[in-house]
């Protein structure tokens, strides 16, 4: 099993790093955070304003689009069928891809965190929150990629979901009505956690909303999972 996971990881490093569309997703928000944190200085601006905002956008966008694009492309190019002939199990395939995506996203998150001024335990807390977000988004992307027959269908599904996940937290800071809706989305809850200070950073309602999001996405993923090698 480990041989298959390692091989898939090796393949992703060789293949996806040449895929500019995916590479941009991984690099865009860390770069934007560095630029905004370095160049923009607004009086009385909330601490970690840009890093928190871009961090949540990164969570909502990068793992979701990367995972759905990788799986749907493999389905379209028929490479998944070949992997099946090499006795690669769906589980091994997901683990290989997940390690790759989460590793890159966590590197990007580290850049965002450091650029945003997080240090020590604060940085660790930031990274843990980001990890939770990346895992949820990655499963959402996997569910889309596995459930769609080709890249076009996957993109048309992942773009609106990604927009909701990535931009609602930002929009909710400007509009109270949007905030009422956005609070049910995992990315908004992660944004709220990032902005909270002190001992009460995780509240019961936050946990419940996150749990419902995880269950819903896990349900969709489980339903789509069995179609990975069967379409």
């Amino acid at each position: 099993m480990m041989n298959h996971v390692r091989s898939i990881l090796w393949k992703q490093l060789k293949d996806t790093l040449k895929n500019t569309a995916i590479l941009i997703q991984f690099l865009m928000f860390p770069c934007m955070t560095i630029i905004m944190e370095t160049c923009v200085d607004i009086p009385n601006m909330q601490e970690h304003f840009f890093s928190n905002m871009f961090a949540v956008m990164y969570v909502g966008m990068a793992p979701l689009t990367a995972m759905s694009a990788i799986i749907s492309e493999e389905k379209e190019q028929n490479t998944l069928r070949v992997l099946q002939m090499y006795n690669v199990k769906a589980f091994e395939y997901f683990v290989g891809n997940a390690i790759y995506i989460i590793s890159i996203c966590m590197c990007g998150s580290l850049v965002i965190g450091i650029a945003g001024g997080y240090r020590g335990m604060d940085l660790l807390r930031f990274m843990v929150i980001m990890l939770i977000g990346h895992v949820i988004s990655m499963f959402a992307g996997a569910a889309i990629g596995a459930g769609c027959k080709n890249q076009m269908v996957a993109t048309s599904l992942s773009v609106p979901i990604m927009m909701v996940g990535a931009f609602l937290p930002m929009l909710s800071t400007f509009n109270h009505t949007i905030e009422k809706v956005a609070k049910y989305i995992y990315s908004e809850q992660l944004y709220l956690i990032l902005n909270r200070q002190g001992a009460t950073i995780i509240r019961v309602d936050t946990l419940v909303i996150l749990l419902i999001n995880i269950l819903l996405i896990a349900g969709c993923f489980t339903k789509a999972y069995r179609h990975v090698f069967s379409d």
């Binding site: 091989s7 090796w10 393949k11 895929n19 190019q77 490479t79």
Partner: peptide, 18 residues
């Protein structure tokens, strides 16, 4: 069923590694 962005050599190497 080949990986378009990867080289001929890397395509074969991937399957041999599997």
């Amino acid at each position: 069923g080949l990986y378009e962005r990867m080289s001929c050599y890397d395509n074969l190497k991937f399957y041999a590694k599997l």
